[in-house]
């Protein structure tokens, strides 16, 4: 059951991420064709997506683990605040995140190289800045999404205190 919730949540997170990128890039590309009402609606939707994404991000167990991990202390002393399940989860998530980053970056670099070679795009500073923002969203959400795939966030899962009382 918890795995199913985690998968649904991961799917919702990916959709929110795609919507965020879409809402950010679409008005810039087709801004002239949008009316004021449509643009305002889009702004509200974008804001909602950002709030939902931020909420999911900061209530995620990933941040809970990061907060309790004390990386500097672990590096210096070898002592960690995490238990064995959390360590396994962190290692699995970091491994998966790394693999996803490698695959995504290889695809992105390959596509960019092809586009430049074919003269479909001219690489300049403006384009890099434009591409960097959607990519930074991916960079921000990717670690959380990979972890959410395995473990439901506190946003959806029943809090431990409620389970105790039930």
């Amino acid at each position: 059951m918890t795995r199913m919730i985690a998968r649904h949540r991961a799917a919702a997170g990916i959709l929110a991420l795609l919507a965020l990128v879409l809402f950010y890039t679409l008005p810039e590309e087709t801004g002239d064709a949008w009316g004021d009402v449509a643009m305002a609606t889009l702004d509200v939707l974008m804001l909602l997506v950002v709030i939902a994404g931020g909420w999911a991000l900061f209530t995620s167990p990933y941040f809970n683990i990061l907060h309790r991990e004390s990386p500097l202390r672990r590096a210096a002393t070898g002592i960690t605040d995490l238990d064995e399940r959390e360590l396994a989860l962190r290692d699995r998530a970091s491994g998966l995140t790394y693999n996803l980053f490698v695959v995504l970056n290889m695809i992105a670099i390959g596509a960019l190289a092809l586009a430049i070679e074919q003269a479909w795009v001219v690489l300049d500073g403006d384009m890099l800045m434009k591409a960097f923002i959607p990519y930074s969203y991916v960079s921000l959400f990717l670690p959380v999404l990979t972890l959410e795939w395995f473990e439901p966030s506190s946003l959806w899962a029943t809090p431990i205190d409620d389970e105790e009382e039930a």
């Binding site: 167990p61 995490l82 238990d83 064995e84 399940r85 959390e86 431990i160 389970e163 105790e164």
Partner: peptide
Amino acid sequence: SRKALAEAVGVNPQTIG
């Protein structure tokens, strides 16, 4: 409670769940 057991064995209460 889960919390008491977790503290006794040195894990997060969520791990007991």
